[in-house]
Design a protein around this nucleic acid. Structure first.
Lengths: 203, 203
DNA sequence: TCTGAAATTCAACGCCTGTTGAACTCAACG
DNA sequence: CGTTGAGTTCAACAGGCGTTGAATTTCAGA
């Protein structure tokens, strides 16, 4: 039995304050643009304290981004139901998440994924293993076509996020959610269930 | 009449060498990641010479990115022809450009567009005024629906570029061009000509 | 109350950045 | 020849960065 003495919990609010400041900084500036000094200032704290809690900047980034989204919860909810409306439900869920406060962190992830290499790899792996693979396993598809179909879905959704939330291109940035659901839903539906060209070996 | 004496032409190759090094650096690292010092080294030149030619880093970026792509040439070529195959032709043109060496600069633009704000604005304005507006004017559409339709097209194409060329998500990154043309073409076709939900005022 | 560990800060290191201005080289012109 | 000015480099500035280690405060347990 290890009985540790001394001041143990102290004031754990600061840790969360740092995390919050880090999330908003990463969201606004991306990984490279956000500085530990600025994050510390935003949390009303010395930069050294950030290192005391999280070590390197990498670990802080991971800690800041891991928390806010849990795909394990929302995805099954979307996949349940009739396959006919799956495309629309997927788009609706996607837009809802991005419109929520958790979506702000997503903007940071997306920004960071484009700048450095390791964030790109991390983002890709996260999306592939946490999101696409779940969708693949839950929807009945020929296993050969599945990866391409899922990639196509990802491309349309990623483009939507980029144009609407990062670049903020009008009028798409302020188009009501349900209009986009009706417009983009069928695309997703077709990518999942529709006809697809056979990948030929020759040529 | 101003008659300038002294060494005039000298060795103007260096200017292009700097431009080339800048393009490849911006493409690999994005605006913030690429450093003037690294660009200078890549061109076998002193960092100060870069400033001598281009002034600030901003101007160098603009000079490096303005050159390689001229939408005024390729877009009309795509728009000509039967409307039926327009979607596929658009996707084919898009992928061809991105596969070409000029596309490497595009990767840089896309990366940079996500990091800083002013590059995002620049990229958006470039795309909106140089690409989307041309397409809008050339394709017969009800002027009310046109902006949304064009935005949707942009979102699908942007997502394609992001997933295939920046994030390099498999299998989409190595899927043959024509397979993607057949898969995504109909989406574009539907965004341009297909049914779209009416944007309601109420609700 | 005393002790010692956690929470927090201060000051500094070394590095890289964009930018500047003075210097040097050298081909072309008068 | 000598002047000129473009091409080019050198050395330095001022500032931001991530990170570190020592010092200081604060408080829970003995």
């Amino acid at each position: 039995m290890v009985r540790r003495t001394g001041r143990r919990p102290g004031n754990p609010d600061t840790r969360d304050a740092i995390l919050a400041a880090a999330r908003s900084a990463f969201a606004e500036k991306g990984y490279d643009g956000a500085s530990i000094r600025a994050i510390a200032t935003g949390a009303g704290v010395d930069p050294a304290l950030v290192h005391h809690y999280f070590g390197t900047k990498d670990k802080l980034f991971l800690a800041a981004m891991n928390m806010p989204l849990d795909p394990g919860e929302i995805i099954p909810e979307v996949l349940a139901g009739d396959p006919e409306g799956l495309g629309e439900r997927l788009v609706r869920m996607f837009l809802t998440v991005w419109d929520s406060p958790a979506g702000k962190a997503g903007v940071g992830l997306l920004r960071s994924a484009m700048s450095s290499d390791w964030t790109a790899r991390m983002f890709r792996d996260f999306v592939v293993t946490q999101v696409l693979r779940r969708v693949m396993n839950a929807v009945p598809m020929p296993p050969e076509e599945a990866p391409l179909r899922v990639s196509l879905v990802a491309s349309q959704l990623a483009g939507l996020a980029m144009v609407r939330y990062v670049l903020k291109v009008e009028p798409l940035a302020s188009t009501p959610r349900e209009v986009l659901v009706a417009a983009v839903g069928p695309t997703i539906q077709r990518y999942i269930f529709g006809d697809l060209p056979k990948p030929k070996a020759a040529d």
